[in-house]
Design a protein around this nucleic acid. Structure first.
Lengths: 189, 189
DNA sequence: AACCGCAATTGCCAAATGACAAGAAATGCG
DNA sequence: CGCATTTCTTGTCATTTGGCAATTGCGGTT
């Protein structure tokens, strides 16, 4: 819980009373490995702050193969923002790839906080724009790099994450086959 | 000018008085082909609405090669949002690749509008989050496609744009060499 | 301990793409 | 118009990556 407040305070100020309001609304939720936090076709009216575990955001093609868009892990918000904001069906899945613990806000509670806490919206505007632009900058580079560079880049950007993520999911994130990733790993000390 | 208002009205309401305020602040600016709207290392305290022309957002590597992140064309905002929001130096260049006409707001004027027009900020939050998520979804797919699929995708997403953009810039956007793009084009009716 | 199922590794070959270089076409300019 | 410069195309060859299949490795179950 402290972690969440610390995280939020990076993006705006919150006095003691406001922090208490936030703590009142937050609900602990555990999500087992393999379960979904959000599913394509369903409205996901919740936003979660990950305190433990790793999720992947992914989609499936017609043949049933899955592709990983990105990973979400400790001290980040996990949410399908389009679905949450507009209450439209998700286009993607958010799957727990380890057992996860999350602090969840329902859309209704989130909206109440928005009314009760001036600057609440502002915090989330900053967070989402910061996160999105960062992601865009990172993934924008990937096209012009070969597979090994992308992998090394991933390692340095997300230290330790590679070991918590199945190889096939990491491969689909990097845009290569599991075989290729396996070969790349072999070529690195 | 009308185009700008039409564009903004897609994201929020503006009464006659508010529209007049916006028109007062907007300044026409022409940018010659090859000139920059923003440059790496400099603060870019302006946001522009493109009424004519094409820009590319790009960066350079150590050896001086340039890489195109994306293109901005008519009826879109062109801005280095990080630089504009935080008044920090840009990390990228925004280069006019044709002669361009732009409606520009300085940061100061933009902030005044934010005070004078309730919902102004909201409009821009919607625009940026919409644009960013779209871009992310589009570019996120690119890694798992081969070069030809990416090119075809570009053609259908941005009809007509391919003919207004030099081949080498389009190639660097697609993450391939100019030679490869040339060959791909040959293989398509 | 033996077995099963899934994930990861590895080998082999084919296809895609890059690197480099030469030539053709388009563009700009006096 | 003609020349110079840039951009685009094309050829050749090397490298990367994918597709497929066989094999190995590991955790869980009986």
């Amino acid at each position: 819980m402290e972690e969440l407040l610390t995280y939020l305070l990076q993006y705006g100020e919150l006095d003691t009373r406001q922090r208490a309001l936030i703590q009142e609304k937050a609900r602990w939720k555990t999500i087992a490995k393999g379960a979904y936090f959000a599913e394509a076709g369903k409205v996901s009216a919740q936003i979660g702050y990950v305190t433990e575990g790793v999720f992947r955001v992914c989609y499936y093609d017609k043949t049933g193969d899955s592709f990983t868009r990105y990973f979400v892990y400790e001290n980040r918000f996990v949410v399908d923002m389009n679905s949450f904001r507009d209450e439209t069906p998700s286009a993607e899945y958010i799957e727990a790839i380890t057992d996860c613990r999350v602090l969840v806000f329902s859309k209704a509670d989130f909206m109440q906080l928005s009314v009760q806490i001036p600057g609440w919206d502002d915090i989330f505007v900053k967070i989402t724009s910061y996160v999105l632009e960062n992601k865009l900058k990172f993934t924008g580079n990937m096209l012009v790099q070969d597979a090994q560079q992308r992998y090394l880049n991933f390692l340095s950007h997300y230290p330790g994450l590679a070991n918590r993520v199945p190889l096939n999911m990491l491969a689909s994130y990097l845009g290569i086959t599991p075989s290729s990733l396996s070969r790349i790993r072999k070529n690195i000390p």
